[in-house]
Protein backbone atom coordinates (compact mmCIF):
# COMPACT_ATOMS: atom_id res chain seq x y z
CA UNK A 1 0.00 0.00 0.00
CA UNK A 2 1.53 3.32 -0.96
CA UNK A 3 1.60 6.41 1.19
CA UNK A 4 -0.62 8.29 -1.21
CA UNK A 5 -3.38 5.77 -0.93
CA UNK A 6 -3.14 5.78 2.82
CA UNK A 7 -3.17 9.51 2.89
CA UNK A 8 -6.42 9.58 0.99
CA UNK A 9 -8.11 7.62 3.73
CA UNK A 10 -8.75 10.88 5.52
CA UNK A 11 -9.74 13.02 2.60
CA UNK A 12 -12.35 12.98 -0.12
CA UNK A 13 -9.93 12.80 -3.01
CA UNK A 14 -11.12 10.57 -5.78
CA UNK A 15 -10.24 9.82 -9.35
CA UNK A 16 -11.92 10.95 -12.51
CA UNK A 17 -12.86 8.72 -15.42
CA UNK A 18 -15.83 7.07 -17.05
CA UNK A 19 -17.98 4.73 -15.02
CA UNK A 20 -16.47 1.80 -16.89
CA UNK A 21 -12.89 2.93 -16.27
CA UNK A 22 -13.52 3.49 -12.60
CA UNK A 23 -15.15 0.10 -12.15
CA UNK A 24 -12.25 -1.52 -13.92
CA UNK A 25 -9.79 0.18 -11.60
CA UNK A 26 -11.82 -0.91 -8.57
CA UNK A 27 -11.79 -4.48 -9.86
CA UNK A 28 -8.03 -4.47 -10.47
CA UNK A 29 -7.36 -2.91 -7.09
CA UNK A 30 -9.48 -5.45 -5.23
CA UNK A 31 -8.07 -8.35 -7.24
CA UNK A 32 -4.50 -7.41 -6.24
CA UNK A 33 -5.42 -8.08 -2.61
CA UNK A 34 -7.06 -11.42 -3.20
CA UNK A 35 -6.00 -13.96 -0.61
CA UNK A 36 -4.24 -11.38 1.57
CA UNK A 37 -5.68 -11.95 4.98
CA UNK A 38 -7.44 -9.12 6.70
CA UNK A 39 -7.16 -6.59 3.91
CA UNK A 40 -10.86 -5.80 3.42
CA UNK A 41 -10.90 -2.50 5.34
CA UNK A 42 -7.72 -1.29 3.65
CA UNK A 43 -9.10 -2.25 0.23
CA UNK A 44 -12.33 -0.38 0.94
CA UNK A 45 -10.34 2.74 1.89
CA UNK A 46 -8.54 2.59 -1.46
CA UNK A 47 -11.66 1.79 -3.45
CA UNK A 48 -13.45 4.72 -1.85
CA UNK A 49 -10.57 6.96 -2.83
CA UNK A 50 -10.93 5.79 -6.42
CA UNK A 51 -14.70 5.76 -6.77
CA UNK A 52 -15.56 8.44 -4.21
CA UNK A 53 -18.02 6.32 -2.28
CA UNK A 54 -19.11 2.71 -1.90
CA UNK A 55 -22.50 1.99 -3.46
CA UNK A 56 -23.81 -1.58 -3.52
CA UNK A 57 -22.57 -2.42 -7.02
CA UNK A 58 -19.05 -1.39 -6.04
CA UNK A 59 -19.28 -3.47 -2.86
CA UNK A 60 -20.34 -6.34 -5.12
CA UNK A 61 -17.18 -5.98 -7.23
CA UNK A 62 -15.01 -5.95 -4.09
CA UNK A 63 -16.83 -9.04 -2.77
CA UNK A 64 -16.33 -10.92 -6.03
CA UNK A 65 -12.64 -10.12 -6.31
CA UNK A 66 -11.81 -10.87 -2.68
CA UNK A 67 -14.06 -13.94 -2.80
CA UNK A 68 -16.04 -12.80 0.21
CA UNK A 69 -19.82 -12.88 0.67
CA UNK A 70 -21.43 -9.51 -0.18
CA UNK A 71 -22.93 -9.54 3.32
CA UNK A 72 -19.42 -9.48 4.82
CA UNK A 73 -18.37 -6.52 2.69
CA UNK A 74 -21.62 -4.69 3.33
CA UNK A 75 -21.40 -5.43 7.05
CA UNK A 76 -18.00 -3.78 7.22
CA UNK A 77 -19.04 -0.79 5.09
CA UNK A 78 -22.04 -0.10 7.30
CA UNK A 79 -20.08 -0.53 10.54
CA UNK A 80 -17.46 2.16 9.99
CA UNK A 81 -18.29 5.84 9.75
CA UNK A 82 -15.57 6.59 7.18
CA UNK A 83 -17.28 4.51 4.53
CA UNK A 84 -20.04 6.25 2.57
CA UNK A 85 -22.72 4.60 0.50
CA UNK A 86 -24.01 7.84 -0.98
CA UNK A 87 -22.12 10.17 -3.33
CA UNK A 88 -19.95 12.61 -1.47
CA UNK A 89 -18.96 16.16 -2.20
CA UNK A 90 -15.58 16.95 -3.75
CA UNK A 91 -14.38 18.06 -0.33
CA UNK A 92 -15.25 16.85 3.13
CA UNK A 93 -15.66 19.33 5.94
CA UNK A 94 -15.39 17.79 9.37
CA UNK A 95 -16.16 19.96 12.34
CA UNK A 96 -14.64 18.50 15.46
CA UNK A 97 -17.02 17.89 18.33
CA UNK A 98 -14.51 16.27 20.65
CA UNK A 99 -14.81 17.38 24.27
CA UNK A 100 -12.34 20.24 24.01
CA UNK A 101 -13.98 21.59 20.86
CA UNK A 102 -17.43 21.13 22.37
CA UNK A 103 -16.41 23.05 25.49
CA UNK A 104 -14.77 25.78 23.39
CA UNK A 105 -17.79 26.44 21.20
CA UNK A 106 -17.83 23.79 18.46
CA UNK A 107 -21.62 23.90 18.40
CA UNK A 108 -21.60 27.48 17.11
CA UNK A 109 -19.35 26.42 14.21
CA UNK A 110 -21.73 23.60 13.30
CA UNK A 111 -24.73 25.94 13.42
CA UNK A 112 -23.00 28.59 11.35
CA UNK A 113 -21.93 26.05 8.72
CA UNK A 114 -25.42 24.59 8.52
CA UNK A 115 -26.67 28.08 7.84
CA UNK A 116 -23.97 28.95 5.34
CA UNK A 117 -24.08 25.69 3.38
CA UNK A 118 -27.83 25.29 3.66
CA UNK A 119 -27.51 21.65 4.73
CA UNK A 120 -27.57 19.73 7.96
CA UNK A 121 -24.50 17.91 9.27
CA UNK A 122 -24.25 14.63 7.39
CA UNK A 123 -25.43 16.16 4.13
CA UNK A 124 -23.83 17.14 0.84
CA UNK A 125 -24.34 20.52 -0.81
CA UNK A 126 -26.45 20.57 -3.96
CA UNK A 127 -23.51 21.76 -6.08
CA UNK A 128 -21.55 18.69 -4.92
CA UNK A 129 -18.68 20.74 -3.52
CA UNK A 130 -18.92 19.88 0.16
CA UNK A 131 -19.94 16.99 2.32
CA UNK A 132 -20.33 18.27 5.85
CA UNK A 133 -19.82 15.96 8.80
CA UNK A 134 -19.24 16.01 12.52
CA UNK A 135 -15.94 14.50 13.63
CA UNK A 136 -15.51 12.74 16.94
CA UNK A 137 -12.11 14.13 17.76
CA UNK A 138 -9.35 15.02 15.37
CA UNK A 139 -6.75 15.41 18.11
CA UNK A 140 -6.27 19.15 17.70
CA UNK A 141 -7.66 19.71 21.18
CA UNK A 142 -4.98 22.25 22.01
CA UNK A 143 -6.37 24.51 19.31
CA UNK A 144 -10.09 24.09 19.86
CA UNK A 145 -12.50 24.56 18.22
CA UNK A 146 -11.02 22.96 15.14
CA UNK A 147 -12.30 21.72 11.80
CA UNK A 148 -10.81 20.03 8.77
CA UNK A 149 -11.43 20.28 5.06
CA UNK A 150 -10.03 17.09 3.55
CA UNK A 151 -6.62 16.86 5.25
CA UNK A 152 -6.19 20.54 6.06
CA UNK A 153 -6.73 21.41 9.71
CA UNK A 154 -8.10 24.82 10.68
CA UNK A 155 -7.35 25.75 14.30
CA UNK A 156 -9.31 28.06 16.62
CA UNK A 157 -12.11 28.60 14.13
CA UNK A 158 -14.59 31.40 14.63
CA UNK A 159 -17.98 31.42 12.93
CA UNK A 160 -17.09 34.73 11.28
CA UNK A 161 -14.01 33.14 9.62
CA UNK A 162 -16.02 30.50 7.79
CA UNK A 163 -16.70 32.30 4.49
CA UNK A 164 -12.99 33.01 4.16
CA UNK A 165 -12.07 29.41 5.02
CA UNK A 166 -14.50 27.87 2.52
CA UNK A 167 -13.86 30.27 -0.35
CA UNK A 168 -10.68 28.73 -1.85
CA UNK A 169 -12.23 25.25 -1.91
CA UNK A 170 -14.98 26.11 -4.33
CA UNK A 171 -12.49 26.51 -7.16
CA UNK A 172 -10.86 23.10 -6.97
Amino acid sequence: MSTTQQHEAGGAVHCTGTEEELEKRVRQLAASYKGKEGSLIQVLHMVQSVYGYLPLHIQQIVAEELELPLSTVSGVVSFYSFFATKPRGRHTIRVCMGTACYVRGGVSIVEALEKQLGIQAGGTTEDGVFTFEIARCIGSCGLAPAMTIDDTVYPEVKAADLPEILEPWYGN
Binding site: V76, Y80, R136
Partner: peptide, 25 residues
Amino acid sequence: IRIGAGAFVCGEETALMNSVEGKRG
Protein backbone atom coordinates in the same frame (compact mmCIF):
# COMPACT_ATOMS: atom_id res chain seq x y z
CA ILE B 1 0.14 -0.40 9.42
CA ARG B 2 -3.60 -0.92 9.58
CA ILE B 3 -5.77 2.16 9.25
CA GLY B 4 -9.06 2.31 11.13
CA ALA B 5 -12.22 3.60 9.57
CA GLY B 6 -13.90 5.68 12.23
CA ALA B 7 -15.20 3.47 15.03
CA PHE B 8 -14.50 4.40 18.65
CA VAL B 9 -15.06 0.85 19.89
CA CYS B 10 -11.98 -0.32 17.95
CA GLY B 11 -9.82 1.12 20.73
CA GLU B 12 -11.02 -1.86 22.78
CA GLU B 13 -8.40 -4.54 22.25
CA THR B 14 -10.59 -7.40 21.06
CA ALA B 15 -12.60 -5.14 18.74
CA LEU B 16 -9.30 -3.80 17.44
CA MET B 17 -8.14 -7.31 16.57
CA ASN B 18 -11.32 -7.92 14.61
CA SER B 19 -10.70 -4.68 12.75
CA VAL B 20 -7.07 -5.62 11.97
CA GLU B 21 -8.51 -8.81 10.51
CA GLY B 22 -10.64 -6.61 8.25
CA LYS B 23 -13.88 -7.36 10.02
CA ARG B 24 -16.55 -5.34 11.81
CA GLY B 25 -14.98 -3.96 14.94
